[in-house]
């Protein structure tokens, strides 16, 4: 049952050292504020799952909180590579990170299998692809009806999933709009789900009947964090901060500059700072 609470409390109650956690968002609605709160609370030894780890996972890896990363595309979107992740993978700084790499199709199917309560996902994929050689979690099965060889990967079942959404209503039902990505599957696949939202409205009574809504009883905690997806965007609220992604390429290129930036912008900041960060990016509603 969804309970409204401040973000620091939501993270403290739902994320534990050693957890398998997904902070999902497919270039849109990335739960940056929740990830920053996890960094401030120094919750480490995490196995992080995400289809498209970008700046926030780069930050968590650079702060030494990550033991293992499960992913399908690790890049700074529109800019290039993730420099903190590269430093960890190539040089073991600040600590080595174990990598389990998939394709998007595999991760999407694996989340869906998790949400569907299945042990694994079966799909037509990885044909001729070398990831199947280096990732022991990519196997194949034979269709019992046609004999076709299909790929199989284990279902994703995070201990906790964090997502950012546009709206919650007073009861704690959550609405996601625009590029909805993998958020619904990631939330339903997890044992616990935490949602940060742009705003809380009275109810969704006039909403279109086919909107993507997570009922309140599928969610554990909701925190109101306007701007909480910055530097990604929230459809209908604010635009993507492209300059921040470019800036990250420079900040993350140097270990000391990275640490100073994290000190100033994450460790000594608070969830309410996000509202200011998106002020000039707000779109007309």
């Amino acid at each position: 049952m969804a309970r409204m609470m401040p973000l620091d409390e939501a993270v403290r109650q739902n994320l534990r050292p050693g957890d398998t956690a997904a902070f999902e968002g497919f270039t849109h609605l990335i739960p940056t504020a929740a990830a920053h709160e996890a960094i401030r609370q120094k919750i480490g030894n995490l196995t992080l799952i995400r289809m498209t780890p970008d700046v926030v996972y780069d930050q968590m890896i650079g702060m030494g909180l990550v033991k293992k990363l499960v992913f399908s595309y690790a890049g700074n979107p529109g800019v290039g590579l993730l420099r903190r992740m590269r430093d960890a993978v190539e040089n073991g700084w600040p600590q080595a990170v174990e990598v389990e790499e998939h394709s998007h199709a595999a991760m999407a199917n694996a989340y869906e299998a998790g949400a569907a309560g299945l042990p694994c996902a079966i799909f037509r994929g990885y044909r001729g692809a070398e990831l199947a050689r280096v990732n022991p979690n990519i196997k194949s099965v034979t269709c019992p009806f046609t004999g076709e060889q299909l790929a199989a990967v284990p279902a994703i079942r995070p201990d906790v999933t964090f997502i950012h959404a546009q709206k919650a209503d007073r009861k704690g039902n959550v609405l996601v709009e625009g590029i909805i990505g993998i958020q619904k599957e990631a939330a339903l696949a997890a044992r616990r789900t935490v949602v940060t939202v742009e705003e809380i409205v009275d109810d969704f009574s006039n909403a279109h009947p086919n909107l993507c809504i997570l009922p309140h009883w599928t969610i554990d905690a909701i925190s109101l964090v306007p701007g909480g997806a910055h530097p990604s965007y929230a459809h209908g609220y604010y635009a993507r901060d492209n300059a921040a992604y470019l800036e990250w390429d420079e900040v993350s290129a140097d270990r000391e500059r990275f640490q100073a930036w994290m000190e100033e912008n994450v460790l000594n900041a608070a969830p309410q700072d996000f509202a200011n960060r998106v002020e000039k990016l707000r779109t007309a509603q």
Partner: peptide
């Protein structure tokens, strides 16, 4: 396992290609 350069990875491409 010991990459000179770790690139972003495949994303959607392995299945787009097939």
């Amino acid at each position: 396992d010991k990459p000179k350069v770790r690139l972003p990875g495949g994303g959607g491409a392995p299945e787009i290609a097939t």
